[in-house]
């Protein structure tokens, strides 16, 4: 995994109150690749993901140490506007969370709060985002209907479209398919595959087959530490560490 990194961290520690959830994480995430975070539940994957777009700041009593860079700029620097960071680094949540608005208004949400008012431009971006999220054909005739009427898989793709509409550089996905049936899951996985051409994708998954299928790089976390990170193929065939191998082969976790 040579080449320059899009996002990287240096000596990242994270605390919920007094309890430390992440220990000294150093990782480099390359552009236009899919990086998967795997590891047993509670090892800190979601916490780490939320450090990358500063969403942890919405949880009271948390503290972060160390640095997170995107293209060389520390996102926790005092001069940085958190709103900018979250527009550059989009996020899709584990539990799909469409807003109780129309399909169109969901996708247009980020643009509108960003100040875009031009109706034609809005319609154009919404269509493009829905096409990119592989949802356009299913909803083109009912853009004004409530998003709550979509199926689970459609809702999650809508959330992806909503994130894509603000044209982020990086897309964070926290177990985006964990609540979906196999067919909807497959669609999301295909989508991730297509999206990496335009975006840098980081996906948390507890499903190792999924990590093997969709990712180029895999990072294995355990008890709040980054144990091993490498090309996905190598992690799944000849990991360097015994701990990783044990997890991959299902001997624990």
């Amino acid at each position: 995994m040579a080449g320059e990194a899009k996002v990287w961290t240096e000596g990242l520690n994270f605390f919920y109150g007094a309890s430390q959830a992440l220990h000294d994480i150093n990782i480099k995430i390359p552009p236009h690749k899919v990086t998967a975070f795997i590891g047993p539940s509670g090892c800190g994957k979601s916490t780490f993901l939320r450090c990358l777009n500063r969403m942890n700041e919405t949880i009271v009593g948390t503290r972060i140490e160390g640095k997170v860079f995107i293209e060389g700029h520390d996102i926790y620097d005092r001069s940085v506007d958190v709103v900018d960071i979250r527009r550059r680094i989009g996020m899709v949540f584990q539990k799909s969370n469409p807003f109780p608005k129309s399909i169109f208004d969901n996708v247009a949400y980020g643009l509108r709060i960003g100040g875009l008012k031009d109706k034609n431009k809005l319609a154009e971006v919404v269509e493009k985002a829905l096409i990119d999220a592989a949802l356009w054909d299913e909803v083109r005739d009912r853009l004004q209907e409530s998003a709550m009427g979509l199926s689970g898989g459609q809702q999650q793709r809508l959330c992806i479209a909503r994130a894509l509409a603000v044209e982020p550089e990086v897309l964070l996905m926290d177990e985006p398919a964990s609540a979906l049936d196999p067919i909807a899951t497959q669609r999301i996985e295909e989508l991730i595959h297509q999206l990496k051409e335009k975006y840098t994708i980081i996906i948390v998954t507890h499903n190792m087959q999924q990590a093997a299928r969709v990712s180029d790089i895999t990072a294995f976390f355990y008890l709040g530490r980054l144990i091993e990170v490498d090309d996905t193929e190598r992690i799944f065939t000849r990991p360097k560490l015994k701990q990783t191998e044990d997890y991959i082969t299902g001997r624990f976790g």
Binding site: T58, R86, R87, F93, K95, N97, F99, Y109, I113, G114
Partner: peptide, 20 residues
């Protein structure tokens, strides 16, 4: 999740509250 969803799209806190 309505608040978080808005914030993750780059809403300020007041925007998230006002619109979502």
């Amino acid at each position: 999740s309505y608040r978080d969803g808005a914030l993750a799209l780059g809403a300020t806190k007041w925007q998230a509250i006002r619109t979502n």
